[in-house]
């Protein structure tokens, strides 16, 4: 071996820091504690197929499922909730997003207040909104559509205002330098560059809303979930399974269309 290559001693293996150990230990203990608290039970996995309850899921009563009043009317109501709340939420989000972007809103107070409200709205899970509105304005699709509108608004504002933030500021500058007022300057300078993203986000929110509107009925906010909730109380899991197969078939098709539209836009 050539001695010129032996320039240095072998280093000592560095010991992991005590803090990392401590963090790992705390996480481990927390995980165990949490597992006990949720009554973690692996035997569910191997006992799952021998559970007699599965026989309640089978056979699926297709002649009950394929009826207008049991499946298709509630399903259409679900779609209507999703469409209406997407349209309302996204339309209102358009001006709000521009008001919330630091690029287009020089006013710090407006910016701060709207951002805080939107963060608070998003901190409440969507079905909590639904339950609140059901209590406030009565059971049915009306409450469901309102709650999803609020939620769409919050999510859309979050996504879109960040896109506006990142938009190229130069066209806006050009429009301002030609003496345009604030609103027309934003309309001609920023709007065209961010509009495709706006449409794409709207479609994405539509997909979210479709999924959410399926389960709204579980808390009384209309749509196909109402049927699931009723059948659940009668322990008719065979009917529920049939319904779910139909629902997710249709949801899947709609999503595929929406996804392919989105891809074409971008």
């Amino acid at each position: 071996m050539n001695d010129s290559t032996k320039t240095s001693e072998r280093p000592v293996k560095p010991k992991p820091r005590a803090r990392s150990f401590l963090i790992a230990l705390v996480l481990l203990v927390l995980t165990f504690w949490a597992a006990v608290k949720v009554s973690f039970d692996l035997s569910t996995f191997w006992e799952v197929w021998s559970n007699p309850i599965w026989s309640k899921f089978w056979p699926i009563p297709w002649d009950w499922v394929f009826t207008k009043e049991n499946t298709f009317d509630p399903l259409i109501e679900t779609l209507q909730i999703a469409v209406a709340s997407t349209l309302l939420g996204c339309l209102v989000a358009l001006p709000v997003s521009f008001a919330m972007s630091s690029l287009t809103t020089p006013n710090k107070v407006v910016y701060f207040i709207s951002k805080t409200i939107m963060n608070l709205v998003r901190a409440v899970p969507d079905l909590f909104w639904a339950k609140l509105l059901v209590t406030a304005i009565g059971i049915g699709a009306f409450a469901g559509a309102w709650s999803l509108s609020i939620f769409s608004l919050a999510v859309m504002v979050k996504l879109f205002s960040e896109t506006v933030d990142a938009a190229d500021p130069r066209p806006l500058e050009a429009a301002r330098s030609s003496g345009a007022r604030h609103l027309p300057a934003v309309k001609t300078g920023v709007f065209p560059t961010v509009f495709p993203s706006y449409v794409a986000y709207s479609l994405y929110i539509f997909e979210l809303n479709i999924r959410a509107s399926v389960v709204l009925g579980l808390v009384g906010a209309g749509g196909v979930g109402r049927v699931i909730e009723t059948q659940r109380q009668f322990f008719r899991f065979d009917r529920i399974l049939g319904l779910l197969i139909i629902i997710f078939g249709i949801v899947w098709v709609i999503e595929q269309i929406s996804v392919s539209l989105r891809k074409r836009l971008v």
Partner: peptide
């Protein structure tokens, strides 16, 4: 592995 690192002269960078 250590011998190989010594041969190319960067054993001090092992870790």
């Amino acid at each position: 592995a250590m011998l190989a690192l010594e041969r190319v002269g960067i054993v001090d960078k092992t870790y």
